[in-house]
Each structure stands twice: as structure tokens, then as C-alpha cells.
Amino acid sequence: MENLIQNLKVQIIEQLNLAETKPEDIDASAPLFGEGLGLDSIDALELIVLLEKNYGLKIADPKDAKNIFQSVKTLAEYISSQKK
């Protein structure tokens, strides 16, 4: 899990071009959207593609992404739950 969280942080920084942010700056439990990293709806779409590209997971309706994308931790949990 820790590895997955670490990888996700690096991938998110790259995909969303968060050049000023380092992986250790991201609190795995902090909200990704609104507060915390301050991401928006466009970033959510970028993350949906990241999930498909890197983990083969498809989210058909952006509305479903809301719960999954709460934090890096919820994202990691979703990925590992789908892999089982």
C-alpha cells in the first residue's frame, strides 16, 4: 500500500504538472480537490485517464470518481480493491 501511495503521488505530480509540489508535500489523507492540493474538474478527468493508462481501470461516469478521488489514500484503496 505504501508503495502504491508513493507511486501515485509521483504520477499525479507528473500528470497534473504540479512542478512546485514534491511527493512528500502531499498528505495521503488530505483532500485532493477544493482544499488540499486544490484540484478541479479538469484534473479529475486527467486522473481518470491516469487510472486507465497506468492501472487499466476504467471509470465511465465522472460522477463515480468523486468518492474514489477524495484523497491519495482512497485512490490507492480503490486500485488495490480492484486488483483482487
Binding site: 500528470q15 479538469i42 478527468l45 486527467e46 485517464v49 486507465e52 493508462k53
Partner: peptide, 9 residues
């Protein structure tokens, strides 16, 4: 396939 929106918008 697997395109992202940022550059489009």
C-alpha cells in the same frame, strides 16, 4: 485513445 483534456481546452 487515452487522451486528456487539458491541451484541448
Amino acid at each position: 485513445q487515452l487522451l486528456t483534456p487539458t491541451s484541448f481546452i
